[in-house]
Structures are given as structure tokens and as C-alpha cells.
């Protein structure tokens, strides 16, 4: 369970203070799929950064399974992120010069997974996104959709509890985007992994269990199937 409590985040100083997030509160049950909806500048990306411990808010708590990750020191947050969270970005951020295998290997290396155990995990992740035949290809040889699938493989290789996706289909056409969406929701349902999608795409948001709408740093509405 993820509890977001009284999150307030401001940028700037003195006269130029800009409030990105203003007293944001909500709760996400384990294994749910959640869409954080909002226009650009609404604060949805900042909310994702705060929830993942990448950014520190001025006030508030992010409690994941009873533990406030914002009260941890940097080392513990890093460790938490490397073992329990993963990310998918709009612009993929796969390493073009590296092979698909090495791209997927990165989170395991960061999480100190022993070398012997890596191979089976990497191959399983590549199989799940149907890129096992591209194992040795360099990422730059892949198409956009394949790159995002590679990013999905990288995100799921270490079996995270929470999967953050920041506009995962923003750079893809509707067909390849659909494939990536299917992969994400399939993985969410099958492994009871909490999926948090940041988007402004209504269709993508509607596939999620919960929709949280943000406007000018405040929660406009929280709708859910449950």
C-alpha cells in the first residue's frame, strides 16, 4: 500500500515561490493500476518523482508498506529504489551503444544481484517482451516500439513492487503503443505489481483501476473501479 500524505512542494524563493504540489493526499492499494492524469505543468511528474524518492517535497510523507521513504537517508532510498521500484520513460532512455542484454542487466548490477543469477532473469525479462532474439543486438538497431519494450524488460527484470511509467506511449504510434500498454497491464495483473502511469492520454488512463486527476498542483478528483 502506498499512502501519500500532505505532500507540498514549492520551487523558487521569496517573491517567486511557485507551488507545484499543494497538500496532496491519496492512497493506492497493492497491485492496483493507477493513472495520474493532468496537463503539462500540472505537477504530475513532480508527484511521481516525490513518490519514488527522486525528489524531496517541502512537507508530507510517502508511506510505502508502513515505511516513510522520505525519512530515509539517501543510501537507503537508493537501495529501496534499486530493489522495489522501476521506471519507464517517455523517451525510453535505453543505452543505444549497449546490447539489449547489457541494457537489461543494468538494474541487476545496481541491485548487486550475483553474476550467476543474472542470466536467467535477463532472459526471462527479454522473453516476456518478446525481444529474446534481439539479445545481442545493440539498442540503436531497434525500432521505437522495440526500444520501449526493451525499457519494459529493464523495468521488470528485478521483479519490482512498484512500476512507474511516465508517458510510456507518448512517443509511440497507437499500434506499438497498444503493445506496450498490453505488456504493462498484463504484467500488473499477473504479478500483482502496483503500476503507476503518469499520462495525459484519457484512453490509457481509462484502462487503469484508479484515475487521479491533478490540476495546478492539487487533486481534482480520484475515481476508481473499486
Amino acid at each position: 500500500m502506498i499512502e501519500v500524505k500532505n505532500i507540498t512542494k514549492t520551487y523558487g524563493k521569496k517573491d517567486n515561490v511557485f507551488r507545484v504540489l499543494n497538500d496532496v493526499n491519496f492512497t493506492i492499494p497493492d497491485g492496483a493500476s493507477v493513472a495520474i492524469l493532468g496537463k503539462s505543468g500540472s505537477g504530475k511528474s513532480t508527484l511521481m518523482h516525490v513518490m519514488s524518492g527522486l525528489d524531496r517535497p517541502d512537507k508530507g510523507q510517502v508511506v510505502i508498506d508502513g515505511q516513510d521513504i522520505l525519512s530515509m537517508n539517501q543510501k537507503d532510498i537508493d537501495k529501496f529504489r534499486s530493489t522495489a521500484m522501476s521506471f519507464i520513460f517517455q523517451s525510453f532512455f535505453v543505452q543505444a551503444n549497449e546490447s539489449c542484454y547489457d541494457n537489461v542487466s543494468l538494474p541487476l548490477e545496481i541491485a548487486n544481484v550475483p553474476t550467476k543469477k543474472r542470466r536467467s532473469k535477463i532472459e526471462a525479462a527479454l522473453k516476456a517482451v518478446e525481444l529474446i532474439d534481439k539479445k545481442k543486438s545493440r539498442a540503436r538497431e531497434l525500432s521505437g516500439g522495440q526500444k520501449q519494450r526493451l525499457a519494459v524488460a529493464r523495468a521488470i527484470v528485478n521483479q519490482p513492487k512498484i512500476l512507474f511509467a511516465d508517458e510510456p506511449t507518448g512517443n509511440l504510434d497507437s499500434v506499438t503503443g497498444g503493445v506496450v500498454e498490453d505488456l504493462l497491464f498484463d504484467y500488473n495483473k499477473r504479478n500483482k505489481v502496483t503500476l503507476i502511469v503518469v499520462t495525459h492520454d484519457e484512453d490509457l488512463a481509462n484502462r487503469c483501476d484508479i484515475q487521479i486527476r491533478i490540476k495546478d498542483g492539487e487533486i481534482e478528483s480520484v475515481k476508481g473501479k473499486k
Binding site: Q74, D78, S82, F87, F93, P107, I110
Partner: peptide
């Protein structure tokens, strides 16, 4: 810059 950002997002420590 982006590679470093990604590594840090994935939990790579400053020291590393």
C-alpha cells in the same frame, strides 16, 4: 547526462 540520470533513478549510488 541522461545515462547518469537513469542510473541514479534506478538506485545507483552517488559513490558508484
Amino acid at each position: 547526462v541522461q545515462q547518469i540520470g537513469l542510473m541514479k533513478a534506478l538506485g545507483m549510488r552517488r559513490r558508484d
